[in-house]
């Protein structure tokens, strides 16, 4: 779990750097890669797994660092987004898209 958190820490940090310094040269309105990553993690991971919520907090932290808002603004948004997706999947879907190893079930 800790290894996974460290990997995602650097992943979100790198995505934030790309978003703020690299991609703005190509498109005027570039989609928020970090929010997309949160949605994908929450959708694809096992329903019982809570890593998506932790990842959302981590991602929100980096969005806050590279934005002019107070620290916590994006943390709360991404946290609520992750919880909403989790609850939505729990109430409307019985099977997760992937198994606990992160691969598609046979």
């Amino acid at each position: 779990m800790i290894k996974k958190i460290i990997i995602f820490f650097f992943l979100f940090y790198f995505l934030a750097l790309l978003q703020t310094s690299f991609f703005l040269h190509f498109l005027k309105y570039f989609p928020n890669l970090i929010l997309i990553a949160i949605v994908l993690i929450c959708l694809l991971e096992d329903q019982k797994n809570v890593f998506g919520v932790l990842a959302a907090i981590l991602a929100g932290f980096f969005l806050d660092i590279f934005s002019e808002r107070f620290i916590g603004y994006y943390i709360l948004i991404s946290l609520f987004l992750a919880i909403f997706i989790k609850l939505f999947l729990k109430t409307h879907f019985r099977l997760s898209l992937t198994n606990s190893y992160g691969s598609l079930p046979r």
Binding site: Y13, L17, S21, F22, F23, H25, I65, I71, G72
Partner: peptide, 30 residues
Amino acid sequence: ILIFNVFSFEVKNFFYLVSEPIQKKLWSAG
């Protein structure tokens, strides 16, 4: 969140300081 906001200047300055070389490279590469 409250702790980070109390030290938000220091926290943000630290991350900008660490990121500066990478951001400069990414900016010019972009």
